[in-house]
């Protein structure tokens, strides 16, 4: 219920107020629309064909949450479940982690095994200590789970190759919730949307 409202600055002040300047114009809208349309080809051109990604095609050198080198080539012969995340994500990544844990339980029930890889989106903020803390507090400490830190270039290459779209807004990372499954030969065989909105089989 609206009882009363005022936005005025009604203080008792002795001086004369200067006349107000006119504010705002809608004209810049046209300029920005022009700039936006000019920029769009650049946006689309960043999408590189991601046909049949192989694990072996990703940058090989990573570090784990113990700051130890981790070579993706060592995963040859193992089924691999892979996703990307960032440690201070509290909306999307927790859903992804829950989905991974569910997959782990399914593997255990079936008596099969897989290596779980979580590649950090933001190596500048999420260092090994941050991921180690992340694992400890969320009880994700099984030895077949690997939280990987790469260089910014390696992370971006891997994301593009695997079709993870993300962008940074200050300390926030805007990203999706995909989970990829690679078979023992390192071939991508399934992609899932972790939030449950859709499932895609390749």
């Amino acid at each position: 219920m609206h009882r009363c409202h005022s936005q005025s600055s009604d203080t008792h002040r002795p001086q004369q107020r200067r006349p107000r300047k006119q504010l705002r114009s809608a004209g810049p809208l046209l300029v920005v629309l022009q700039l936006l349309s000019a920029a769009l080809p650049g946006v689309w051109s960043t999408r590189v064909c991601a046909s049949a990604p192989q694990l072996a095609e990703l940058p090989a050198d990573w570090r784990d949450d113990q700051s130890q080198p981790f070579d993706l080539r060592t995963l040859q012969g193992h089924a691999v479940v892979l996703t990307m995340a960032y440690a201070t994500c509290h909306r999307v990544c927790p859903m992804t982690m829950r989905r991974l844990q569910q997959m782990q339980r399914d593997f255990d029930r079936r008596g099969t095994s897989a290596e779980f890889l979580v590649i950090g989106y933001d190596p500048e903020r999420d260092d090994a200590a941050a991921w180690h803390q992340y694992r400890e507090t969320r009880h994700l400490t099984r030895s077949n789970w690997h939280f990987l830190i790469g260089t910014r270039t390696a992370v971006e290459q891997a994301a593009r190759r695997l079709g993870f779209e993300f962008w940074k807004y200050d300390e926030h990372v805007m990203h999706d919730t995909r989970i990829l499954y690679f078979d023992e030969r390192g071939t991508l065989v399934e992609t899932r949307e972790a939030a449950g909105y859709e499932t895609t089989l390749r």
């Binding site: 784990d64 130890q68 080198p69 981790f70 070579d71 080539r73 060592t74 995963l75 040859q76 012969g77 193992h78 290596e115 030895s143 077949n144 690997h146 023992e184 030969r185 390192g186």
Partner: peptide, 23 residues
């Protein structure tokens, strides 16, 4: 091209030096 990876590599813990040069 679809040959399975060597058993020795599969048996080694991932990320370790032993597994880095598996086959």
């Amino acid at each position: 091209a679809g040959a399975a990876a060597p058993v020795a590599a599969a048996a080694a813990p991932p990320g370790t030096l032993a597994a880095t040069q598996p086959g």
